[in-house]
Deep mutational scan, measured.
Amino acid sequence: KAKLLVLLYAFVATDADTICIGYHANNSTDTVDTILEKNVAVTHSVNLLEDSHNGKLCKLKGIAPLQLGKCNITGWLLGNPECDSLLPARSWSYIVETPNSENGACYPGDLIDYEELREQLSSVSSLERFEIFPKESSWPNHTFNGVTVSCSHRGKSSFYRNLLWLTKKGDSYPKLTNSYVNNKGKEVLVLWGVHHPSSSDEQQSLYSNGNAYVSVASSNYNRRFTPEIAARPKVRDQHGRMNYYWTLLEPGDTIIFEATGNLIAPWYAFALSRGFESGIITSNASMHECNTKCQTPQGAINSNLPFQNIHPVTIGECPKYVRSTKLRMVTGLRNIPSIQYRGLFGAIAGFIEGGWTGMIDGWYGYHHQNEQGSGYAADQKSTQNAINGITNKVNSVIEKMNTQFTAVGKEFNNLEKRMENLNKKVDDGFLDIWTYNAELLVLLENERTLDFHDLNVKNLYEKVKSQLKNNAKEIGNGCFEFYHKCDNECMESVRNGTYDYPKYSEESKLNR
């Protein structure tokens, strides 16, 4: 008799109507990190870190770059004969040098303040090359056809396309004075040089004057150069050297050249137009028929994500570079809930034993079982409120962090190594801060989002509990077992918050 009662009780308990509160689960393989956990499985997430590029040089917003090819900045601007293909260059979106560009200054020497000139050019998007001192009329008392084997072109001695090597005419090199007034309405880049012979005999042979000088002056520039005559090792078949100089001439300003020898005179100059998204990159990537809004030396990035880990040097509207390998923000729920887990921000989770793959029309909802059958029903209101809140948060985070910009490298010469090392340390410090901030932001927001979901499920549970009161009992896994019969209409009233407690209280009292 006792065995019969136990079996009867078990049958009745199993047959009781139930309603459970749960949440969506799926077959997603997404994982995120939080402050407290690593690799948390979630139903949905968004990636904030771009880690792919196309490996190509592309047009930037429809404008092609200027590819210097086998030449570098120095060779292009001075007019190395091997860089003749660059003479027609007028406009570009950015400038590309190759790491091993070999054609710079063909006659050995240095372009002074080269690093600063590169910085200036990094904001130039177009130029006009014009004859600042016409070759045939500007130097009537001097020979202007100086050439050298060091600047050979097609097997013949030649010289820079933008400079003139002035030497004596006959047996004399009379003092020369020439000036140019900038009437271009924009900055003009003027380049010139000073020749330093290897011996007094060479000085006399070329310029006749043993104590020659070169003077260059404008409103913002004033220097006097004296040739340094000295024996030097042979470089590119030359014992002599040429140093090259430049200045930016403001609109309306005048530049005056005065010399008694050794002047490498300007022939062509450049009127410059600035462009905020221009820059110089060093890259071996090849040019393709493609378009982008962000270019790196590795390749083009076409992404609206706020961060990238491809390269710190970028041109155009680019994500911020960070050292992170993963920045994924959760938008959905835990896919593998932890039992009795309390989140960092106070939300209680884990009283549900598992997510439901059968509930596909919402994030949170119900599963019921009664004599009429069983089924899932999503709670659309709480789901939609959660979707709206999380979507707004993700968009806000992306908008705040998605300050796209150009980031170019800084140039230092060989004598500025300590400054370069200090600059690298400062840049590394800023990069570490950006990386830390980005990672911390994602970790915190992921923790908040998961706790937010847990709290929403808990609130749904409490909503049902407050309606049923003692007409049902909690069975410990997020479910309630009714003390009365609850048909589909009754189940719907529980879900929509209109459950009639008094209607079922007498039946429940008897069954309790």
Rank of each mutant, 00 (worst) to 15 (best):
A2K: 01
A2S: 13
A2P: 03
K3G: 11
L5H: 14
V6G: 05
L8D: 02
L8W: 14
A10E: 02
F11V: 14
A13P: 09
A13G: 05
T14Q: 01
A16L: 04
A16N: 10
D17A: 09
D17W: 10
T18Y: 11
I19N: 09
I19E: 11
C20F: 05
C20I: 00
C20D: 15
I21G: 01
I21Y: 14
G22R: 06
Y23A: 03
H24N: 00
A25P: 02
N26I: 11
N26M: 03
N27Q: 05
S28N: 10
T31D: 00
T31W: 06
V32L: 15
T34N: 11
T34H: 08
I35F: 12
L36I: 09
E37C: 02
K38R: 15
N39H: 09
V40R: 03
A41R: 13
S45H: 14
S45A: 10
S45W: 15
V46A: 06
L48Q: 12
L49Y: 08
L49G: 08
L49Q: 08
E50Q: 05
D51F: 02
S52M: 09
H53A: 11
N54A: 01
G55M: 15
G55Y: 03
K56F: 15
K56M: 12
K56H: 11
L57W: 13
C58Q: 15
C58M: 12
K59P: 00
K61S: 04
K61T: 00
I63Q: 14
P65S: 04
L66P: 06
L68P: 02
K70D: 01
C71T: 04
C71W: 07
C71A: 08
C71E: 04
C71N: 03
G75S: 08
L77R: 01
L78A: 10
N80F: 00
N80L: 07
P81H: 15
E82P: 00
E82D: 12
C83I: 01
C83N: 09
D84W: 02
D84Y: 09
S85Y: 13
S85C: 07
L86E: 03
L86P: 08
L87S: 10
L87G: 09
R90L: 12
R90Q: 12
S91K: 11
S91A: 05
S91C: 01
W92T: 02
I95Y: 02
V96C: 08
N100T: 08
S101P: 13
S101H: 03
S101E: 06
E102I: 15
E102R: 07
E102D: 02
E102S: 12
N103C: 09
N103M: 07
A105M: 03
G109L: 00
D110L: 13
D110F: 03
L111M: 15
L111V: 11
L111C: 03
L111E: 00
I112N: 10
D113G: 08
E115H: 05
L117G: 03
E119K: 14
E119C: 06
Q120N: 10
Q120L: 09
Q120R: 14
S122Q: 12
S122C: 12
S122M: 07
S125Y: 13
S125M: 06
L127G: 06
E128D: 14
E128F: 04
R129M: 10
R129W: 06
F130H: 06
E131W: 08
E131D: 13
I132R: 04
F133M: 15
P134E: 14
P134Y: 10
P134L: 02
E136Q: 07
W139C: 06
W139Q: 03
P140A: 09
H142R: 05
H142A: 07
T143C: 03
T143S: 11
T143I: 02
F144H: 08
N145I: 05
N145Q: 15
G146K: 13
G146L: 06
V149A: 15
V149P: 00
C151G: 09
C151L: 10
C151Y: 14
S152W: 01
S152Y: 00
S152E: 13
R154V: 13
G155S: 13
G155M: 12
K156E: 15
K156C: 03
K156R: 10
K156W: 04
S157G: 00
S157I: 08
S157K: 14
S158W: 01
S158H: 14
F159T: 07
F159K: 04
F159W: 10
Y160Q: 09
Y160H: 05
L163C: 10
L163Y: 01
L163I: 15
L164W: 05
L164R: 05
L166T: 10
T167H: 08
K168D: 00
K169P: 00
K169S: 11
K169E: 13
G170Q: 15
G170L: 14
D171I: 13
Y173G: 02
P174I: 11
P174N: 11
P174C: 02
L176G: 01
T177I: 10
S179Q: 13
Y180S: 00
V181E: 07
V181S: 08
V181G: 04
V181M: 13
N183D: 14
G185A: 13
K186Y: 01
K186A: 09
E187P: 15
E187Q: 10
E187S: 12
L189S: 03
V190Q: 03
L191Q: 01
G193E: 03
G193C: 05
G193W: 04
G193K: 02
V194N: 01
V194G: 06
V194P: 03
V194S: 01
H195D: 08
H196S: 12
P197S: 07
S198G: 05
S200C: 03
E202S: 05
E202G: 03
Q203M: 09
Q203V: 04
Q204L: 10
Q204H: 00
Q204K: 02
S205C: 11
S205W: 00
S205F: 04
Y207S: 06
S208G: 15
N209W: 03
G210A: 15
G210L: 13
N211M: 05
A212F: 04
Y213T: 06
Y213Q: 11
V214W: 06
V214A: 09
V214Y: 05
V214M: 11
V216L: 08
V216M: 12
V216C: 10
V216I: 13
A217G: 03
S218I: 05
S218P: 02
S219K: 12
S219A: 09
S219Y: 09
S219V: 07
N222D: 12
R223G: 14
R223Q: 11
R224I: 11
F225E: 04
F225K: 01
P227G: 11
E228V: 11
E228K: 02
I229K: 08
I229A: 09
I229E: 02
R232K: 14
K234D: 06
V235P: 01
R236K: 06
D237Q: 09
G240Y: 07
G240R: 05
M242I: 13
N243P: 03
N243I: 10
Y244C: 02
W246Y: 10
W246E: 01
W246A: 02
T247M: 14
T247C: 12
L249A: 03
L249S: 00
E250S: 13
P251V: 02
P251H: 13
D253C: 06
E258Y: 02
A259M: 10
A259L: 12
G261K: 04
L263H: 01
I264F: 01
A265N: 02
P266L: 11
W267Y: 11
W267D: 00
A269I: 00
F270R: 00
A271F: 03
L272P: 00
L272V: 15
S273Y: 11
R274W: 03
G275W: 01
G275M: 04
F276L: 13
S278Y: 00
S278T: 11
S278L: 13
G279Y: 10
I280P: 02
I280Y: 06
I281G: 00
T282E: 07
T282V: 15
